[in-house]
Amino acid sequence: MLDQQTVAVFGLGSMGYGMASSCLNAGFTTFGIDITDKPMEQFRAEGGSTGNVHDHLSELDAVLVVVLNAAQTEAVLFGENGIAPSLKKGTVVLACATVPPEFAKNMENRCANHDVLYLDAPISGGAAKAASGELSIMASGSPSAFTSAKPVLDAISATVFELGDAAGAGSAMKAVNQLLAGVHIATMAEALTFGMTQGVTPEKFVDVISQCAGTSWMLENRAPHIANGDYTPLSQINIWPKDLGIVLDVAKSAGFSAPITSAALQQYMVAVGMGLGKEDDASIAKVYARNVGLKLPGDKA
């Protein structure tokens, strides 16, 4: 039985909503907060706490910040209505967005000024694993932050990688992961559409390559979206210019050249320019398809 907790989840996108649901399933009193009303109303209907979370900040044991980027993370904690100054001593913030390591270090220091613990806790695993409480978490922070976060970590994750006793190491590892993930998605789309030029259907591509040496988790997860012609956004194209941009910024600061990452980033930027930013990131295949005049499954044209 997990320890009883009162938690708030800021950001009810596909990942945050699943994480909030996992907290609720663990028996925690859980507030779900988003900039739009619909997911909040749905979460409350499923058992989420009602009322304004700002009236209950002093009751929170943990805060999960599952937003898009560093700016949104900072706004939740220290913006005009930032919550950090009003949290009780010892509340732990699990910051889950992909952010630069230096930003995570800065947030840890600023939270410490308010006696708030900070766990640099980027996540991986996709929406399905978020909903089932089976995420992988690349975490770093003080021993006290890990101890305070343990009930929530147990509720939302299958694997927690403890990467260091200060913020920054978790975000550094997430940058490594996002380099691979972003490149794998783009390369999968390139390989799938290349196969189509040779008479290999997307369905056959999935059947065969998923069982061969060229497979990857991203291929097995995203290629079926293309084969099914379903680009419902479980992870948007818009995420990758940000995340691969972070990778390249970190690489630049280290004097490291990342040409494959740069090439993948350009493809995502083309996809955004085509108006695909809010589609599932598997829709990067449409960039390749357009360039060579291919018709993908589900295309109406």
Rank of each mutant, 00 (worst) to 15 (best):
N238Y: 05
A186C: 15
W217H: 10
H225F: 11
S216W: 10
R222P: 02
Q178D: 07
M188Q: 07
G182V: 10
P241S: 14
N228I: 00
T215W: 08
A181W: 09
H225A: 10
A251G: 15
M173R: 00
L179P: 05
V208I: 14
F205T: 02
T215P: 07
P241Y: 13
A181M: 09
E220F: 04
P233W: 03
S216D: 13
Q211N: 13
V247F: 09
T187M: 14
Q267R: 14
S210W: 13
M196S: 00
V200K: 07
E220T: 14
H225V: 03
Q267Y: 09
N221H: 10
L244T: 05
L180K: 02
L179G: 10
I260A: 15
D249M: 07
T232A: 10
D207W: 06
I209W: 05
A191K: 06
V247Y: 11
M188I: 04
T193P: 03
C212S: 15
T261G: 12
N238H: 06
Q198H: 07
V250C: 13
I239W: 12
L219D: 09
L192V: 09
L265F: 08
V206T: 05
I226H: 07
N177R: 09
E190S: 01
M173H: 00
E220H: 05
P202E: 01
D207K: 15
Q178S: 08
V250H: 04
Q211H: 14
T187S: 14
F205V: 01
E190H: 05
M196W: 01
T261I: 04
T187D: 10
M269P: 00
L244R: 10
Q266M: 09
A181F: 10
D207R: 11
K204D: 04
A227P: 08
A264M: 10
Y268Q: 04
I237L: 06
N177Q: 11
N238K: 10
T215Q: 15
G229M: 01
T232E: 07
V208D: 01
D207M: 08
V200E: 02
T197A: 01
V250D: 11
I260R: 11
T193L: 01
M196A: 00
K242L: 06
A258R: 06
V183I: 13
D243A: 06
A191C: 13
T215C: 09
F256M: 15
A186T: 11
P259S: 07
H184D: 15
M269E: 14
A175E: 00
S262N: 11
V206G: 02
V176M: 13
S216F: 11
L219I: 09
I209S: 01
E203T: 12
G195D: 00
A263Y: 12
T201N: 05
V247P: 14
T261N: 13
A181Y: 07
V206N: 07
D207V: 03
M173W: 01
W240Y: 12
L180A: 11
I260Y: 15
N221F: 11
A227M: 08
E203W: 03
S253M: 01
M218N: 13
D249P: 09
L180D: 02
L234R: 09
G182Q: 04
V183Q: 12
I260D: 06
D249S: 15
T232L: 06
G229Q: 02
P241R: 14
D230N: 12
S253K: 07
F256C: 15
F194N: 01
E203K: 13
A175D: 00
K252I: 01
I226A: 04
S257F: 03
K174V: 04
Q267T: 14
S257C: 05
